[in-house]
């Protein structure tokens, strides 16, 4: 029995987490107000034809540097119901570990052929696929030598589903020291992609990442 909500934790060695993490326990929502806390995201159709292939900026342009990979998986809710027509917004650093984001001021080189953002939709069975370049790790805290491990940001939205997460890579040396991975503990494993071979397509390898959207929106689970 709980009469108060979760206590959020601060990511170790993460200054921003220290600055922005609420210190008080989360408050419980009176039952009558729960529905109001479950947003229902309208369908949006903002994706250019080539956005599923982030290995190049546009279909008529050359490939970016680094290892081309396919990322694919199934999007479902906790009951295993596939979530169709949801939008995945994807962003990641380039092969060297630099974002083409106006606020990334690092000295790591840009890649003239890598944009690092793309949007795809799940199909009627909840499946999604995109290609990208395996991102570089980058030094997040030079003062203590802590790296951000290779990761791809994925934001899922559509209907009652809303989730922002990160896909990590297996056997990466920096996984263990990542602040958010530390907070996830044993559950971190679920955010690591599972490699598969891709003999028939023009990428080096594949990474399977099945995404399960958690239960806060139980109001709309059919």
């Amino acid at each position: 029995m709980s009469n108060s909500g979760r206590q959020l934790e601060i990511g170790p060695t993460d200054n921003t987490s220290d600055q922005r993490t609420p210190r008080n326990r989360l408050r419980l929502i009176p039952e009558i107000a729960r529905e109001s806390f479950a947003p229902y995201v309208p369908q949006r159709g903002l994706s250019r034809q080539n956005e599923w292939d982030m290995t190049r900026i546009a279909a008529d342009l050359p490939r970016a540097q680094g290892i081309a990979i396919e990322v694919s998986g199934k999007l479902q809710n906790e009951r295993g119901t596939p979530i169709s027509n949801a939008m995945l917004e994807i962003w990641s650093a380039n092969h060297f570990g630099r974002y083409r984001h106006i606020e990334d001021h690092s000295n790591i080189p840009l890649d003239e052929h890598f944009l690092g953002t793309g949007r795809v939709f799940t199909d009627s069975e909840g499946n999604y696929t995109f290609w990208t370049i395996s991102p570089g790790a980058y030094l997040a805290r030079p003062d203590i030598g802590r790296w951000r491990p290779k990761h791809i940001h994925i934001s899922v939205s559509g209907g009652g589903s809303r989730l922002i997460t990160q896909l990590y890579f297996p056997d990466e040396p920096n996984n263990a020291s990542d602040p958010m991975a530390i907070l996830m503990g044993d559950d971190f494993e679920r955010n690591i992609g599972k490699p598969y071979e891709t003999p028939k397509i023009d990428v080096d390898s594949g990474l399977n990442f099945d995404i399960v959207v958690g239960g806060r929106n139980a109001v709309y689970f059919e």
């Binding site: 479902q76 809710n77 934001s155 989730l163 996830m184 679920r190 955010n191 958690g214 239960g215």
Partner: peptide
């Protein structure tokens, strides 16, 4: 129930072009 994918930080670089 399936175990949910962990939520993670959005980080500093949510694409402005989205």
């Amino acid at each position: 129930l399936l175990k949910p994918t962990n939520e993670d930080t959005v980080g500093p670089y949510f694409p402005i072009n989205f």
